[in-house]
Amino acid sequence: MKRTAIKRKEKYQELDGVLEKYKGRKGVLIKALSEAQEMYGFLSREVLIHIACELDVPLSEVTSVVSFYSLFKTEPSGRCHIEICSGTACYVKGMQDLLETLEEEINIKPGEVTGDGRFGLSTVNCVGACSAAPVVKIGDELIGDVDSKRLKQLLGKYGHD
């Protein structure tokens, strides 16, 4: 037990920097999880156990929170993550066509990652750019007024041939 704990400690030095400032404070679990996700891209079991132990919160509580909020991911996504807005405005303006295009082009559905690990796909509930619906987020880039043609171009830009 001791040995694994030490190993964990070394591995999560960076995370510990973050956890240090939250230790003993109330209401910080979501913040800590968000920062951890930012660091590692997703929240692995090991990371969650580490957070649970360091913040002295039961692991059940941690996973309960993680499984409640849709932005927490417990699996890695593709190198390039695509989010399609599924909010009302985007739905009305044809976001389903975009999902279909992606299924045709790179053969993935929301929640999946392409075989080569290049693209990951998820939907998101409205990013607040409804007047430019339908809206797609690729990596950090938000793109409005997207149609299938544009989406295909974008896929090309991010390395799809």
Binding site: R45, P58, L59, S60, E61, V62, T63, S64, S67, F68
Partner: peptide
């Protein structure tokens, strides 16, 4: 011992240990 919590949400939400 804090073993149980509600996991997930929506229809599939269920009470259980971590994960």
């Amino acid at each position: 011992a804090n073993i149980y919590r509600m996991m997930d949400r929506s229809f599939q939400a269920v009470v259980g240990p971590a994960y």
